[in-house]
Write a protein that binds this DNA or RNA. Structure first.
Lengths: 231, 231
DNA sequence: ATTCTTTCTTGACTTATGTCAATGCATTGC
DNA sequence: GCAATGCATTGACATAAGTCAAGAAAGAAT
């Protein structure tokens, strides 16, 4: 898991947080001096919910799942994360603990940056602080959407939404390799894995998708959108 | 709804946001000059989801419900708000729209402060910015909890949780006047109003609470906590 | 190739929860 | 006081979704 830093410097890195773009050379150097990289194999845990949150983490390559460990071992996957995403969670500023876990799905390269540095920059750079606020806000906004989705839609709507999320926001194609298991799709949509199989089968019968265990092809995106919106 | 400002100045107001405490005299005066008060009768809407978010709003007296308008007219009450709470929502920094509605439950007095002023202060006062970040984080944190509660607990657990929330965080007593209708309790716990009635009846049969249409008395708080935690 | 393990799939069954319809009980306004 | 309204309550019923058990497929390890 330990390795030398691969990326030579923050200055030349284009996989990091958009909010770092506006930093001065000194601020960026401060970040660069206080970071270290690590790699993770599939299924390895990058962030563990409940542990002290001392670092902000950014993926530089690979895909990870962000999930909460709920009651009696039941997980809820909040989203998938790629590069350019700040991983830390609101817990950092509440009780200094991560309030979600993050686990690698593919091989992952990650960059750890101490939160002390982040806080220093927030205090000294108003634009950065505002960027930070915008990032927090957008994530909170998505949580608001998600809570409606999970509580007010039926299984078909929730699954359709997840399939569209993969196509539009993760794999950027309507024909993608499905990197999550049926179990994990269920953890994302709050369904039992058996229900995921059943509903996917129904969507396939209606010729809306083509579903193989390890790939999904969206055949009728409009219909899928309707299902997702009507719940 | 319109009225002269009742509170003479922010300086003497103790019902506002804790984060305003650290402001300089000039900053506070700037806030004071750009605010206006309004009163609302029960059931009147203070913030309407989707409308442009130009103001931060603080209640100075009364109780309001914060809720999202979901699919096909179904609401989800996120929480109840009293004084000292910033009402605006993450939408402000995402698309400049309120992402939830707020409606008065009792008579409410509210203070409107332009977001331009807030933003100016954020830019000039790092401590205030950090306070803002903490506020956002805490609300996001609660949303994370809520999403687990709503998706992973059964009705008894969700209702128990709401009853404890009223007792511990809103009315500060185990014997309180129930200001929400059964319908609204349902919107808070994602239950049909009939289910609220039924489950409350069961909790009453088990001598855990004493429930009248307009008041609730918690008889066995430990048992209620167990139900809330076990789901 | 063969075992072993994990995941996927299917069908039968159970359970949680929502919906509908009818009724009762309060509160408000006239 | 009396209608009118909104809310609470109840029971019968419908439906969504989870659970369990078994087997099939697909990979990984030997």
């Amino acid at each position: 898991m330990y390795s030398e830093n691969i990326i030579s410097s923050c200055e030349v890195c284009n996989r990091c947080w958009a909010n770092f773009k506006g930093l001065s050379a000194e601020e960026l150097e401060q970040v660069n001096k206080n970071r270290y990289e690590a790699s993770f194999n599939p299924s390895e845990i990058i962030i563990k919910q409940g542990s002290p949150s001392s670092n902000a983490i950014f993926l530089t390559s690979g895909l990870a799942k962000v999930y909460m460990e709920g009651y009696s071992g039941k997980n809820l996957i909040i989203n998938l994360a790629e590069h350019s995403t700040l991983l830390a969670g609101p817990g950092v500023h509440v009780n200094s603990r991560y309030c979600y876990s993050v686990a690698a799905i593919t091989s992952v390269q990650a960059c750890f940056i101490s939160f002390d540095v982040i806080r220093t920059i927030i205090a000294g750079n108003p634009a950065f602080a505002l960027g930070f606020i915008e990032d927090l806000s957008e994530k909170a906004f998505r949580m608001h959407q998600k809570i409606l989705n999970l509580t007010q839609k039926k299984m078909h709507g929730r699954l359709a939404e997840a399939l569209l999320y993969f196509a539009d926001e993760v794999f950027h194609s309507d024909d993608y390799e499905m990197l999550l298991t049926r179990q994990e799709i269920g953890e994302m949509t709050n369904m039992a894995k058996e229900s995921v199989v059943r509903v996917m089968g129904e969507l396939e019968n209606e010729k809306i998708i083509r579903a193989m265990p390890h790939s999904v092809k969206i055949l009728d995106k409009d219909k899928l959108r309707v299902i997702s919106e009507k719940g």
